[in-house]
Deep mutational scan, measured.
Amino acid sequence: ADFLSNDDYAVYVRENIQVGMMVRCCRAYEEVCEGDVGKVIKLDRDGLHDLNVQCDWQQKGGTYWVRYIHVELIGY
């Protein structure tokens, strides 16, 4: 899907992401590398560009918070 802005994409992720879902990092962020796959373990839905998504990352080996714009949804 094509999104006009980071805000549009962040809204899409916020409306669709669920705890337990698998996500792929589509934009490297601090300790999380692009392409790493993680399981969503906690969500904080306050802002669009806060650290909203806590995942247990496979490559990184452990949990880390990222923003909506850092992840793509790959289902369960």
Rank of each mutant, 00 (worst) to 15 (best):
C33Y: 11
M22Y: 15
E15R: 12
L73T: 01
E72W: 01
N52E: 10
C26Y: 05
M21G: 05
V40T: 00
G20P: 00
Y12K: 06
R67I: 02
D2M: 15
E31K: 10
C26R: 13
Q58G: 09
R45T: 12
L73P: 12
V11Q: 11
V32Y: 08
Y68F: 04
Y68I: 01
S5A: 12
C33D: 07
R24L: 01
W57T: 07
I41D: 02
R24S: 10
M22H: 13
I17Y: 06
G20V: 00
C25N: 03
E34S: 09
G38N: 02
V40L: 01
W57P: 05
D50T: 08
Q58W: 03
Q18G: 09
M21E: 06
C25M: 07
A10V: 02
Y68S: 12
T63I: 08
V19K: 04
R14F: 04
Y12D: 09
W57G: 00
V40M: 02
M22C: 00
D44A: 14
V40P: 04
W57I: 03
G62H: 06
Q59A: 11
I74W: 06
I41V: 12
C55P: 01
I69W: 10
D7F: 02
G61Q: 08
R14P: 01
K39P: 00
G61I: 00
V71Q: 02
N52S: 12
G61E: 10
G47C: 06
V32R: 01
Q59R: 14
V23F: 01
I74R: 10
A28W: 04
D2I: 14
I17Q: 04
D56I: 05
G62R: 10
L51K: 05
L43A: 03
V66S: 01
V37D: 01
G47V: 08
V11T: 14
D46C: 15
V13A: 01
G47Y: 02
I69F: 15
C55L: 01
Y64G: 13
D36S: 00
Y12V: 03
H70I: 01
A10T: 09
G62S: 10
D50Q: 10
V19E: 14
L43E: 00
Y64I: 05
F3H: 04
E72Q: 07
C26V: 13
V32S: 01
C33T: 10
N52K: 12
G35M: 02
M21C: 10
H49L: 06
G35D: 06
F3E: 08
K60A: 12
L43C: 07
L51I: 01
G61S: 07
V23Q: 14
G61A: 04
N6I: 14
Q18K: 15
G20T: 08
V40C: 03
V32D: 02
D36K: 04
D44C: 09
V32P: 00
R27W: 07
D44H: 15
N16E: 07
G20E: 01
Y76P: 14
G35E: 02
R24K: 11
Q59C: 08
W57V: 00
A28C: 03
N6W: 15
V37K: 06
A10W: 12
F3Q: 12
N6L: 13
E15C: 05
Y76D: 14
E30C: 09
K60G: 09
C33A: 12
V37F: 12
N16S: 06
V66Y: 04
D46A: 15
D36E: 02
W65I: 01
D7R: 12
L43T: 02
K60M: 05
D36P: 01
L43Y: 01
I41F: 03
L48I: 09
L73I: 09
E15L: 03
Y64M: 13
G75Y: 11
Q59H: 07
N6R: 14
R45S: 13
L51S: 05
L73C: 04
Y64P: 00
N52W: 06
D56S: 15
I17C: 05
H49N: 15
R27M: 09
E34A: 10
Y29K: 03
Q58N: 06
D7C: 03
Q59G: 15
L43H: 05
D7N: 11
E34R: 05
Y76Q: 15
D46H: 15
D46S: 12
G75K: 14
D44N: 11
G20L: 01
Y12F: 02
H70R: 00
E31I: 01
L73Y: 02
L43R: 00
V66I: 05
L51A: 06
V71E: 03
A28M: 07
V23T: 01
R27G: 06
A28T: 06
A10R: 05
H70G: 03
D2Q: 07
G75Q: 08
R45Q: 07
Y76K: 12
D44W: 05
E34N: 04
D2Y: 13
V32Q: 00
F3A: 02
V71L: 13
H49M: 06
Y9S: 09
G47D: 07
D8F: 08
T63K: 07
D50N: 10
E34K: 07
W57C: 07
Y76A: 10
A28V: 04
E31C: 10
D50K: 04
V37L: 12
A28K: 12
V53I: 09
Y76F: 11
G75I: 04
V71P: 03
C33R: 14
D56L: 08
K60E: 05
Q18T: 12
D36M: 03
V71F: 02
K39F: 08
V11R: 15
D56P: 02
G61M: 05
G20C: 00
S5C: 06
D2T: 11
I17V: 08
M22E: 15
N6G: 14
K60Y: 10
G75E: 11
Y12S: 10
I69G: 12
M22V: 10
W65N: 10
A28Y: 08
D46E: 10
E34I: 09
T63D: 05
R24C: 02
G75A: 08
I41Y: 04
K42M: 12
G38L: 01
V37N: 05
V53A: 08
D36Q: 03
H70W: 00
H70V: 04
C55K: 02
C26N: 07
G35T: 12
